[in-house]
Amino acid sequence: MTFFAEIWELLSSAKYMSMLFTGLGTTLVVSLFSAILGLFLGTLVALVAICPDSPLMKLPKIICKVYVTVIRGTPMALQLFIMMYAIFAIRGFPQEITAIIAFGINSGAYVSESIRGGILSVDIGQTEAGRALGLPYGVTLMKIVIPQAVKNVIPAIGNELIALIKETSIVSMIGMYDLTQAAKVIGAGNNMASYIVPMSVAACFYLAIVYTLSFGIKGIEKRLRAGDRR
């Protein structure tokens, strides 16, 4: 049988397709919720990082710095294993949630750096003008700086989301049934001659998600830029 005939066989098999879609579901759920958690954590950490120095902010700033350094300095796979086998090694604790927490925490560290960079890229004069008018720091940040930073941050956040979706395939290493794991299981079955066919199909699935996402991000970017000049 040729490669393409095998692909066709896989695509027309209800059983294999349902396996792939089950896996896809896990991949999407883990990606979506860890992206939300990551955005939330990342925003929080970025806001702490750009706050002016003050005795009150000292400890939070140190914690955030350590968090970003440790998370960015260690492999995602190890972070997931530690979460899975040490921190959340509770019997019956849903693996999906552990994975979401692990990926969310990981993503938050990268997102915080993007957001921080985006905020710092807004001309300091904007903040100064707000402060000189008597607006408090927080108000200046919310009304003036962040709306301008969002535009600068969207592309980097988009890249982070794309990386995150692909990286969730690591969960297959701990046996979670995501898209990659589904392909592995299909490939290991009797009917498929090799892994190559299901793996290729799964890769196309990833590609489709990532392509759709980057298309959406381009659209958002365009809309935001259009608002610049009127």
Partner: peptide, 16 residues
């Protein structure tokens, strides 16, 4: 600061 206006070399109008 509400009572002290400031005008900058680079204008610093709010772009958004």
């Amino acid at each position: 600061r509400e009572n002290i206006g400031m005008v900058f070399q680079q204008f610093n109008l709010f772009n958004n």
